[in-house]
Write a protein that binds this DNA or RNA. Sequence first.
DNA 1: CACGCTCTAGGACGGTCGTCCTACGAGGCG
DNA 2: CGCCTCGTAGGACGACCGTCCTAGAGCGTG
Lengths: 188, 188
Amino acid sequence: MSGAATREQIVEAADRLFYQRGYEHTSFADIAAAVGLSRGNFYYHFKSKDTILDAVIESRLAGTRHMLQQWENEQPTPGGRILAFVEIVLTNGADIQQYGCPVGTLNTELAKLDHSMRGQARGLFTLFRDWLREQFTLLGRAEQADELAMHVLAFSQGVAVLSHAFRDEEFVRREVGRMRDWLSTYGK
Amino acid sequence: MSGAATREQIVEAADRLFYQRGYEHTSFADIAAAVGLSRGNFYYHFKSKDTILDAVIESRLAGTRHMLQQWENEQPTPGGRILAFVEIVLTNGADIQQYGCPVGTLNTELAKLDHSMRGQARGLFTLFRDWLREQFTLLGRAEQADELAMHVLAFSQGVAVLSHAFRDEEFVRREVGRMRDWLSTYGK
DNA sequence: CACGCTCTAGGACGGTCGTCCTACGAGGCG
DNA sequence: CGCCTCGTAGGACGACCGTCCTAGAGCGTG
């Protein structure tokens, strides 16, 4: 197997484990076992655990950019795009119930650890924030665009945290409905 | 010093450290150093780390009950009480910016670790949820009371997560204003 | 075949973790 | 005074952590 492919496998496994168990609670041994590599050999591909985290965040950033681009292709209206974001808590409902929001939980963990990669993790939030702001600007709300973007972001985080804690899908559905109503006052 | 007083000191220090650094990232050595005790001696007071967590959660539950009771004494109207809860994100704004919501972050961490004490941590949320539900019932919204309680809870969690990630007090202030407006449509 | 490069296995390292054990000082009580 | 209980100090324990090192397998290329 080529080195690049192995590296990619490592990032994939680390991504999944960091999400499911948290960054700190995931050890090299866990990742190695998931990929089927020996523990010590890791340092051929990544020279530290932080380096893996860096690669994972970079991978998530790329994935997020791709998802946002896809929404822009699929949804003709800014309102529809914002709604697509809002409904993520339903689309990924099962994962969020079990593991929380991948962006929110990573940010919370790294912020609490005062980890050096904290700023990069926040970049995941910023990606959504900027994208949402653009959609609200297109809706003719340029002045409030950032405030509205943060409001929608706060919605998703609040729902994710409580969905994770209570595992209540009905609650998520109700909150999405609420947000849908609120959004409809801003046009399509 | 009496054993009970030492025990209380341990719980206090553990409470603070679990909040500031997270449960898993706090070691016995950290708590021992904070209290000024030897590491090994801990097992005279607590026979495991989980036992300390249990005591910390119990202590937080008691503290929360006390706070809710105090709000009932200070605020004559249910609307005022709900507002007192909403404004927690400003009252404890500095701590939340640095360490997140103590209830939310603990729940998120324990849920992700699939920790046995997860249910007890959720009890902290339930305490607020039931109390908020009661306030909305007093406002004559018995049918929707639980939904509205969860909505307010989701607000606080969303704001806390983003406040923690972005450290933006102005955002918190705006969101509280939004929530205040929304609340005012439900009467005092 | 022999060389060199890529990738791997396996284990050693120093440190820290949660846990447990033993010995001892302090102080009230017979 | 001697005893006994309470609270403590300090270190041992096995396990696991992130990190690092070395030896060698596999294989394309000269």
